[in-house]
């Protein structure tokens, strides 16, 4: 079952601090009083039924969504309307999307070097060498010269992970990275994610892959109706869920 060796000791350095977070879409209260502290090196899996606000939560962390109330402090920077500060945070926080969102007009290599060259002002040769390093890590260096449209879904998602890693982020956010993939491609993406987790990256993953949660997560968070209902280590979360809502959810997704 759970591979405890992967769970390295987590530092007490705070990576993300969320205090009393509230968000509304018009009248709809998406996030209610979220409090969450993520430590450096921690791997967190967020799960919950659709519409529970889990994607919105992690999209608030790099301010793809604005919050209306509460504080979010990422890596010591509080997220406010100060765009400079937001860009600083985004440089340190990598994100992987459900639909990959690769840039279709650029090759795989250019996708990976774009941000390092323009945001980090890295020389092209250095950026390309680094991109090849990460493409090797996600096991597709041979596709570097191809365009995203020529790759399979699993390959595209691995490129998306490499692209995020090329900014050398301190934190990685995964927004349902395997939900848009065919079953046989899920495995190749999860392998990359496990490898990343074992290297000690701080990760927050919104996912329904409970096997992944068991294998690498330090903590599983269950959300429903915009609230964090329950959080626990994967062992306790899956074996002894406390709330009724969690039990119902688990019974539906674990057959």
């Amino acid at each position: 079952m759970a591979k405890t060796s992967a769970k390295m000791i987590v530092s007490d350095e705070v990576a993300i601090e969320i205090l009393g977070l509230n968000k509304w879409y018009g009248d709809f209260h998406v996030l209610r009083d979220i409090n969450l502290t993520v430590y450096q090196g921690e791997r967190i899996v967020v799960c919950g039924p659709s519409g529970s606000g889990k994607s919105t939560l992690i999209r608030c962390i790099n301010r793809l969504e604005e919050h209306q109330k509460g504080r979010i402090i990422v890596d010591g920077h509080e997220l406010t309307n100060d765009l400079k500060r937001v860009d600083e945070v985004r440089r340190e926080v990598g994100m992987v999307f459900q639909h990959f969102n690769l840039f279709p007009h650029l090759t795989v290599l250019e996708n990976c070097t774009l941000a390092p060259i323009w945001v980090r002002k890295m020389p092209r040769a250095e950026a390309e060498a680094q991109a090849m390093k990460y493409l090797k890590r996600v096991k597709i260096p041979e596709q570097a010269k191809k365009f995203p449209g020529q790759l399979s879904g699993g390959q595209q998602q691995r490129v998306a992970i490499a692209r995020a890693l090329c900014m050398n982020p301190r934190i990685m956010l995964f927004d349902e990275p395997t939900s848009a993939l065919d079953p046989e491609m899920i495995k190749e993406v999860l392998e990359v994610m496990v490898d990343l987790a074992e290297s000690g990256m701080t990760m927050i993953c919104v996912t329904h892959e409970m096997g992944f949660a068991r294998q690498v997560a330090n903590r599983v968070i269950f959300m429903d109706q915009g609230q964090i209902v329950e959080q626990n280590t994967p062992e306790l979360f899956f074996l002894q869920p406390k709330s009724e809502r969690t039990k119902l959810f688990l019974s539906q997704i674990l057959h």
Partner: peptide, 13 residues
Amino acid sequence: KGQYEAARALGLS
């Protein structure tokens, strides 16, 4: 919209 979000998430101005 995903293209804008991906660009933003990478820290592009």
